[in-house]
Amino acid sequence: MSPSLAVDLAGLRLANPLVLASGIWGCAAETLVRAARAGAGAVTSKSCSVAPRTGHPNPTVLPWAGGLINAVGLANPGAAEERLILQEAHKSLIPLGVSLIASIFGSTPDDYAEAAELVAGAQPEILEVNISCPNVASEFGLPFALEPDAAAAVTRAVRAAYAGRVFIKLSPNAVNIVEVAAAAAEAGADGFTAVNTLGPGMLIDITARRPILSNRVGGVSGAALRPIALRCIHDVTRAIGLPVIGTGGVDSGEAAIQMIMAGASAVGVGSALLGEGDAVFSRLQREMLTIMQHEGIASLEEIRGCAHAG
């Protein structure tokens, strides 16, 4: 019997564990649906806030030797407009059997709750609460994800405003990510996306003698992030019995299997769309199946969290 890539994510059945990560392609219904058709098991929209935002000026996204660095600055059309985008996407995603994850952010717990209420009408399967963007500190201060009480406050506010599944997006920068996750779990989270980009980091152009990003700093993603993401997912899932979408530098079937072994229920894919586009989803599925056949793994559930042992 051939192995199965199907997974359960907080009671949702995904045909495969690959999830289009937030901030990648997710500005429009059409591109979310395209990623779904290309083989994503779920797709995540770009984070939206109550008020529209133009984001930072360019340069905002740059490829470098270890992956990407970005400081888009949470550009979005506002949650009311985003709801229309999500509704349009959802209509096409339902017949494909692909789940929709709506990402929100805010500047205060109440702000998050309002954004949650605004996108609720689109009935996403999961609401992802982005409390961990590292490139807006000059405007919003340090992310809520760095501190357990702050993470819990946002989670409580969203939980009170939104009846569906709430996933909290964790930061690899937290001093103790397990304490943050535990506080969010206690406050009513149904799961986590782990992790957001790392940093912020900086790139310097030696001829210009200055940072390249207009925001000077930005979140680091791609290959450089993967070992850190694996550790975060491992620690969170070992301590807390909630599902995790493991995200950070996954660019191969092997890396996706590593995420599952670390304890992830599903696997986010973002920076890997660079160069390859949405073909990455079918390639990663093929590579995962090859590994499963070679290693005698019938289902991903069989290996989920196996790295916790020992």
Binding site: I24, W25, C27, T31, T60, V61, V72, L274, G275
Partner: peptide, 22 residues
Amino acid sequence: VMRCGIGVCGSCHCGSHLVCAD
């Protein structure tokens, strides 16, 4: 208007097409 220019961010989409990469 493009941000990344390399098919990642999606800001230049035209329907389901990415103007920068497609």
